[in-house]
Design a protein around this nucleic acid. Structure first.
Lengths: 169, 169
DNA sequence: ATAAACCATTGACTTTCTCAAGGATTAAAG
DNA sequence: CTTTAATCCTTGAGAAAGTCAATGGTTTAT
């Protein structure tokens, strides 16, 4: 426990290297590493910054990319739908759609069957950009899942989606 | 595709219900649901608010709980270690530890082998509270993973940790 | 001995989150 | 049919979280 405090006959440098890898080893065995919330939080922190960086050349971030993806689907989602799917507050959707609309990637179409809500659909330019962005995210995800076999990747996606979408059924 | 725009001979009400479940069905099949980043982002959004709520009676949030957990482990982490483990900026650790220290749950101990860094260790009160908090998070995680069998839960944790900790080896 | 790198901390700044409220519209109740 | 209640989008305010550069004290590298 006080292993790192020992300063016997060493010059201090080598002991710190061993201390570092020793800490990492202990870290891999600590309680927190078994907790879902921690793993997911760490993964999304690393993953989103990484994905944001990868999407930057297209002028997209993970959020706007997600909205664009849903706008390209055949869901024809309203802004409320987007909020539910993405687990965001409806007020967060507004500036997201604003940005995409200003860039000419999506359009707000008043829903004829309910004039309160607006359906978000991608423009031709939006679909074109999405096709490019999809390639990037696919590549990015492959790199992220490098440690897993193809089967394990499918398994992970399956398990994750069953948990993450459990309440959105 | 324009399914939801049809307003034939219905009163509008029943068609919206079917439209809703139809959208959910489409949602489960759309591209985004297969993407790791989306699943993880959604899961952590729902999971952290849920966990924060569960930990509230103890005066903890997921973040402070995570720091407390590591402070209770035998890692004897410095604040930089905490930042790396939790994938946070070092400057974010400061107010986190401040809060726990003010509450008497952890202590900053100057590292004798490197007087720049401070080791964060839990106090007796901190360990006591962590024991309670751990029960809550365990219970909470069980509920979250309700849709999975015990084996699948192990599998998910294994796959997740291999991906999430790939670069922290 | 000097220069370079590192740790914790601060501060400024941006982004994201969380709520509450409002106008327009639709659903429910009488 | 009229009133009431609920819903959708939007706005705005305030809290929380993320990002980045700079500093004092300390340690490593040259």
């Amino acid at each position: 426990m006080v292993y790192f405090f020992m300063k016997s006959g060493d010059n201090g440098m080598t002991s710190k290297i061993t201390a570092k890898s020793a800490k990492e080893e202990l870290f891999m065995k600590c309680d927190l590493v078994q907790e879902l919330n921690f793993l997911v939080a760490r993964m999304r922190s690393l993953g989103s910054t990484r994905a944001n960086h990868a999407l930057k050349p297209l002028g997209l971030k993970v959020r706007s990319y997600s909205v664009l993806s849903l706008a390209c689907s055949d869901i024809t989602p309203t802004q409320r739908d987007l909020a539910e799917f993405l687990a965001l507050d409806p007020s967060q959707i507004v500036p997201l759609v604003d940005g995409l609309e200003t860039s000419g990637l999506v359009s707000r179409i008043p829903d004829p069957s309910d004039r309160r809500s607006k359906v978000i659909v991608a423009t031709a330019a939006g679909r074109k950009l999405y096709a490019q962005a999809r390639k990037i995210t696919r590549q990015n995800e492959d790199e992220t899942l490098e440690a897993l076999t193809p089967q394990e990747r499918l398994q992970l996606r399956d398990l994750l989606s069953r948990v993450a979408l459990a309440d959105a059924e």
